[in-house]
């Protein structure tokens, strides 16, 4: 499903974010990418969504070489991925419902169908009762759950999450981890970058150290 083939990423002044990384994630697998801060976890996830391009090697998603994608093809790749960002990237000028609706509006879903899906996604993360709330009124854990709802509302078969449990207290972190495990259980391929792999004991774990896989 996802394959990294001798992937390197070098930023202009000569900083190596990833060095010769190779691994494969099968369909429906739950994969945790661990490692210290700055080890290259975020860069690795960003390459799958074509937010960053490799400077060496190839990243393949469903057999498609991401590094060779045309600019105009990138949006259609991203619509098949669910992305949970480290800084969440919620839009603070609209409510919970409209934040979750955004990916469906972008994909051009018929409104009635979209509404049902938004409600289902919000129900899944336990935010259905707060759909009219503005993100600023949500707690840290709720904001993270909103970010997850937005990532899964398009029903992607790959879910990528960058530090989804950072800044959360233990109980909330376990709640959030539980949601990812649920998606894994219904067959979604899940990749999670986290410094705290112990939240996902069942997962296969890769560890990055200064850009290299251990």
């Amino acid at each position: 499903m996802i394959r990294f083939d001798h992937v390197s990423k070098r930023y202009p002044p000569g900083i190596n974010a990833l060095i010769d990384v190779g691994f494969e994630a099968g369909k429906g697998e739950l994969l945790v990418i661990g490692g210290h801060s700055g080890a290259g976890k975020s860069t690795l996830l960003k390459m799958i969504a074509a937010i960053e391009r490799p400077t060496g090697g190839a990243v393949l998603v469903n057999g498609q070489n991401i590094g060779g994608l045309k600019r105009s093809a990138v949006p259609y790749l991203r619509r098949n991925l669910g992305l949970v960002f480290q800084d969440q990237k919620l839009l603070f000028d609209r409510n919970v419902f409209d934040n979750t609706m955004l990916p469906l509006a972008i994909a051009g879903f018929p409104p009635a169908e979209a509404k049902k899906r938004v409600h289902a996604a919000l129900d899944k993360v336990g935010l259905l009762a707060r759909d009219k709330a503005m993100p600023i009124m949500l707690s840290g854990g709720e904001q993270q759950r909103l970010a997850i709802a937005r990532a899964v509302v398009g029903r992607p078969n790959i879910l990528l999450a960058d530090e989804p449990t950072a800044h959360l207290d233990d109980v909330t972190a376990r709640d959030v981890a539980r949601i990812f495990l649920d998606f894994h259980q219904v067959g979604v391929t899940v990749l999670i970058a986290t410094y705290d792999a112990s939240l996902f004991p069942a997962a296969r774990c890769l560890t990055l150290d200064h850009g290299k896989l251990q």
Binding site: A49, I51, R78, R79, L91, P103, I106
Partner: peptide, 16 residues
């Protein structure tokens, strides 16, 4: 800016 960036990350085309 924020909305444009997020929309791009969620698969918005240039036209959108």
């Amino acid at each position: 800016r924020a909305e444009i960036e997020v929309s791009r990350l969620l698969g918005a085309t240039d036209g959108f």
